[in-house]
Simulated scan of single mutants.
Amino acid sequence: MTQPYPLLFQPEFKERVWGGRALEQFGLQIPEGHIGEGWMIADHPNGTTSVINGELKGQGLDQVREQFGKEWFGAKGFSEKNGRFPLLIKLLDCNDDLSVQVHPTDDYEGLPKGELGKTEMWYVLDAKPDAKIIYGLKEGVTREVMKEALENGTVMDSLQEVSVEAGDTFYIPAGTVHALCAGVVVAEIQQNSDTTYRLYDYNRPGLDGKPRELHIEDSLNVIAYEGSGATTMKTAGSAAGEWLQLAKSPYFIVEKGIVDGSWSLSTTPDSFTILVVCDGSGSIAWDGGSQDYKAGQCFLLPANLGQYELKGNATVLRSYLP
């Protein structure tokens, strides 16, 4: 019988017109080209990660899920809509500006069959001086104002720009207009969805030299014009050995912790735990083994792992289901 242990996966890398080579700073072996996304823990038709450590090495997350069910993934550990793993964990390298975009809610009737909506959060791992993002609408922007701005090519005048630095957190509920801009590297925790509606893309060509598709009608339909509940916080200077809550949504809770020495923790039967190592290194110890960790790695801890200990010096994000 396979005993639960922290699972580490081979990332699925995605080339994007806005990507670069920054994920190499984590020691990741990335393919040639403009690599914008590392799907670190994924169970989606467009990318499924496979285990690279321990007894289950070589198995896809979908196979592990089907084999071990609620015992490993927790009572809440499955999407009710499609039975898959409910979250998608990514590292993003924004070497150039991303398109201005918005994501739908679970109940949007235009969603592809079996696809979820997309509420997400970002934790900024690295940011160049003067880096910024687009985050929400300016006051008083209605559907009519947005439609007119798109027709006139003045959409940027309707959007809020925010300066960012490492350690900043942004919670992005479905319906929030947003775009990461050049010079930031982020960890993204999101619903397990690959549905994005592009509102504006700076009139630039895609990787194939042709303009990328825009989704104007869908975007206008799903924007939360009255506000989506988006929140942001700066997290520099948080104390070691305490969890700081960064985001709480119906789909995930994300907390930041500083490991300094040794920290005893535990999983709960309700939910798996995901650990994203933002910086530093050390080891995870549990009843039955130990596993080294380093910056850029993302671990899936089964719900039935129980007691575990984080050792070393590191900043980690902990995510689980509410």
Rank of each mutant, 00 (worst) to 15 (best):
T232G: 08
S281M: 13
Y225F: 14
L214W: 01
I52C: 04
P45V: 10
N95K: 15
R21E: 15
L159F: 01
R65E: 04
Y293S: 07
F13G: 06
A127F: 10
A230R: 15
Y197P: 04
Y197W: 11
V164W: 09
I223E: 00
N221G: 02
N304E: 12
Q191V: 01
L98K: 07
I30Y: 05
S193Q: 06
S262Q: 14
E71H: 10
K311N: 15
E32Q: 13
Y320P: 00
P205H: 10
Y225D: 08
V259P: 05
A295S: 13
M156C: 00
V51M: 06
Q307K: 15
Q63N: 11
G289L: 07
A295M: 01
S271W: 12
E120G: 11
R212I: 00
Y135E: 07
Y108C: 10
D107V: 06
D97V: 13
K70A: 12
Y135I: 04
P6Y: 13
P112I: 09
P302V: 06
K57H: 00
A240Q: 08
L61F: 00
G38M: 10
S266I: 02
Q307D: 14
E188R: 03
F299Y: 15
K132D: 07
P45N: 11
F9R: 03
A131D: 03
P104A: 08
G69Y: 08
S262T: 14
I52R: 12
R84P: 02
G257W: 06
D157F: 05
L87V: 10
T49R: 01
E109K: 14
P322W: 09
A166N: 03
N192R: 02
G175D: 00
K57G: 08
S99D: 04
K113T: 12
N203M: 04
E213Y: 01
S79A: 08
H215F: 03
G38D: 02
D218H: 13
V254P: 00
F85A: 10
S262R: 11
Y5M: 09
V277P: 03
E255Y: 02
G288T: 13
T231G: 05
P104D: 08
V254R: 03
F73K: 02
Q291R: 11
Q3V: 14
K118D: 10
V100Y: 01
G110W: 01
G261E: 12
G27E: 11
Y200L: 01
L265F: 06
M156W: 03
I172E: 02
T2R: 13
V164T: 01
L180Q: 06
E226L: 03
N304L: 10
G74Y: 13
V155A: 11
G237Y: 06
G183Q: 12
P112M: 02
I172Y: 05
C181F: 07
G289V: 06
F272V: 08
I223N: 00
S238H: 15
E161I: 03
P211L: 11
L275G: 01
E24I: 07
E188I: 03
L87E: 08
W39R: 12
Y200D: 07
W39C: 07
Q67D: 08
I133V: 13
P322C: 06
E165N: 08
F9D: 05
L301R: 00
G20Y: 04
Q191N: 04
F13H: 05
V124A: 00
T154W: 04
L310W: 04
H34C: 03
V184C: 10
P269A: 13
I284R: 09
S79F: 10
D157N: 04
L88N: 07
W122Q: 09
N304V: 07
E115S: 14
V277T: 09
Q307T: 12
Y197D: 05
